[in-house]
Design a protein around this nucleic acid. Structure first.
Lengths: 251, 251
DNA sequence: TAGAAAAACGCAAAAACCTGCAGGAAAGGC
DNA sequence: GCCTTTCCTGCAGGTTTTTGCGTTTTTCTA
């Protein structure tokens, strides 16, 4: 059996059954476990499915929406979120980006926190509503559905009239030389406005984001005051950021 | 059974039942108590549920309240929502209030609808993100947490710069002589602005709202162009509204 | 405050996984 | 036709993840 044919059948099984067990598949296709595993690894790297221990789950474009991403919060993101919460203090005015890492921060805020939080994410706004001590300011705009964020000129303008103490930014790509990058052009303008409206700018970057770059440039690393990341990152990877004046925090 | 699958089912059980007993789950899923406990610990760590002695509860009280309210949507509200959907057409610009009845309307929209929807409810905005053909405009402001709505001067101003075809208004009190009333003062201003920015104003009123009045006055009944309500309402109760030029729709 | 239930902890076995390697098939150049 | 290169596959060995069990600790309840 050809490799392509096998992989096609794997995806087909996944579509019909909604899940897939690696060992069952090796029997059904009459190949070794390792071959199946290699196939699954390849397909996962190509983004055709989601690899899990024991098999795989579908990752169709429908499921790649925000709700699904929210569920697949990694351990790294949890650790970053936990560390980031320590930066937040009573009485502050805080600007919050959208994104799953920031959502985790919101879910870990102390129940009695007294603060004002400004956000252009309806999802974050809804999550913040459960904290009685937090005044929530929603920034409107045109909803960019893939990330559930308001964007556009109105959004940028609204942020520019705010003077916040802290800005929490979820990060897609962070590189000492390239700077902060993001895959969506419209959002880049908004992110710039958010960063310029806050005294301290905190980047939340789980391990896989460090040293990478995405399509559109947001700002140089020197614009950051803090970088919250995972404890497992080796020192030599963090030093370039320290040299640029960024304070590093881990859990 | 895959670990992810198991955890998904745990969350599902939690959503449907509103609570969860660890030992019951171990039987239902055919795994040991420890495995269930480990899963619950992980899910709690990721902020997906709230761990309690003996089992788990949904994490967010607000979302729980909202989920509950969404679930307890009465048959009347469903009927009203179904009827209201018929008023919506491709190409329209629609202003939408928050509230559970309006949320029901959103959930019943045709999947292929092409329209622009303006809302000051983050909850409605999130729900609308599911529809690829709908352009969503979020109106910002200060979040009034009890109803999950943006309010304030900025919100009023934002609405006043919009010219919509249709405005869907959830109703708290509607009376032929007293007019439209609402229990929250800040929102009254917003509602007025919403109504003035649309050619057609549609009131969504389930049976128990008709003939009642709440604390704060929004507008006279003559400001309405349509009233969507339940079929069971007797004619003599609807006639006063007809005389004021309101078109009445039922399911 | 005592007893029972639930949870946490440590441990070990099993399953799944990854890596490197070698045999074999297919493709292509000489 | 023959050799080289490339790719695919299965296997052996070591590592990681998951899971269930016994034990200890914590929590709840009467």
């Amino acid at each position: 059996m050809l490799k392509q044919e096998r992989q096609r059948r794997i995806l087909e099984t996944l579509r019909t059954d909604g899940k897939l067990i690696a060992t069952d598949l090796s029997v059904a296709l009459n190949v070794s476990d390792d071959t199946v595993r290699r196939d699954l690894r390849e397909l996962a790297e190509a983004g055709k499915l989601q690899r899990v221990h024991g098999g795989a789950l579908p990752r169709s474009s429908v499921e790649m929406n925000y709700a699904a991403r929210e569920l697949q919060a990694s351990a790294g993101k949890s650790a970053v979120a936990r560390a980031a919460v320590k930066l937040i203090e009573d009485g502050q005015v805080i600007i919050m980006d959208g994104g799953s890492t920031v959502l985790q921060v919101v879910q870990r805020l102390p129940a009695e926190l007294e603060a004002t939080i400004v956000t252009h994410s309806p999802r974050i706004a809804v999550a913040l509503a459960e904290y009685p001590g937090i005044e929530v300011i929603v920034i409107g705009g045109i909803l960019y559905k893939a990330d559930l964020l308001s964007v556009g000129a109105g959004t940028v303008k609204a942020f520019s009239s705010i003077n916040a103490d802290l800005c929490l930014q979820g990060i897609w790509g962070l590189h000492p030389e390239v700077g902060i990058t993001y895959p969506n052009f419209e959002e880049v303008h908004v992110k710039r406005a958010m960063m310029q409206s806050a005294d301290q700018v905190v980047a939340l970057a789980s391990a896989e984001k460090l040293g990478t770059a995405s399509s559109f440039f947001v700002a140089p690393v020197s614009e950051l005051t803090h970088l919250v990341t995972e404890r497992t990152i080796p020192e030599e990877m963090l030093n370039p950021y320290r040299k640029l004046g960024v304070e590093i925090l881990t859990d």
